[in-house]
Nucleic acid binder design. Sequence first.
DNA 1: TGTAAACTGGACAATAAAATCGTCTTTAGA
DNA 2: TCTAAAGACGATTTTATTGTCCAGTTTACA
Lengths: 135, 135
Amino acid sequence: MQITRQADYAVRAVLHLARMNSSERAATSTVAKEQNIPPSFLAKIISQLSIAGLLHTSRGARGGVTLARNPGEITLLEVVEAIDGPIQLNECVGSDGGCTFDENCPIKPVWCDAQEELVARLKRTNFGDLLVKSR
Amino acid sequence: MQITRQADYAVRAVLHLARMNSSERAATSTVAKEQNIPPSFLAKIISQLSIAGLLHTSRGARGGVTLARNPGEITLLEVVEAIDGPIQLNECVGSDGGCTFDENCPIKPVWCDAQEELVARLKRTNFGDLLVKSR
DNA sequence: TGTAAACTGGACAATAAAATCGTCTTTAGA
DNA sequence: TCTAAAGACGATTTTATTGTCCAGTTTACA
């Protein structure tokens, strides 16, 4: 019942980028150092975030990473789900239908509601808001 | 970001026991079969629930498992935490203080609030209520 | 055009979690 | 007292997560 370290790293990396001037690029190694994240591990995470369309990367000397959008247009949910996949509090609560074992299982709705609440909360939290709070 | 299978199994096992006549005992193997849980895995889970004081077990022939209390007095939170330990949405949100890295990290409060909400929800859901809904 | 900085991608090791297996101990009842 | 049913306990296997390493590829700039 925890987001993975990867997702936590991803969130911190995005926040780091959000704090910078939007015209600057940051090298993965710099972000890793300042955020205390294993560098080669972060490289993979950034690659995934880039594939997900949240970051832009540029290779070569003076290359680096920037946000693909405004901080205010990136939600916590997007970042977490780009790494961990869809949030799913229990196996039975998911797109794949889940446990067909007990048709009227009374527990499933509890997980569903809790999950919806959590997802909604992460969705309404964007990095623009987070930025304001951290200054 | 998911409860463990163990916790799910625990919840289903407790619900199974809650559905029975309170004077009856159920063998672990029976519960495992009816709830579709690997038997030897369930044995360990039941052992943990017993140590946590949620179940009573009796050994020997005609032994088995019963709830230690009324279904209405057992919450979903207790069962989940007996198996998975305290719910903690992220490493930094916990009793051990967490990341001292960024003193005014704006993300931590988000995880804290979300976690509190989830915990509260699981705490107010007891197996007495669940029983009613499943009939 | 050469070179150093930077991302890319794959293979792999270490660790933790999930699941399984086998053996032991306890106990009700014939 | 003997036996079969049942839980207790420890060893092992499997799988996912986390982290490392290294050999490519791209590109700005001297």
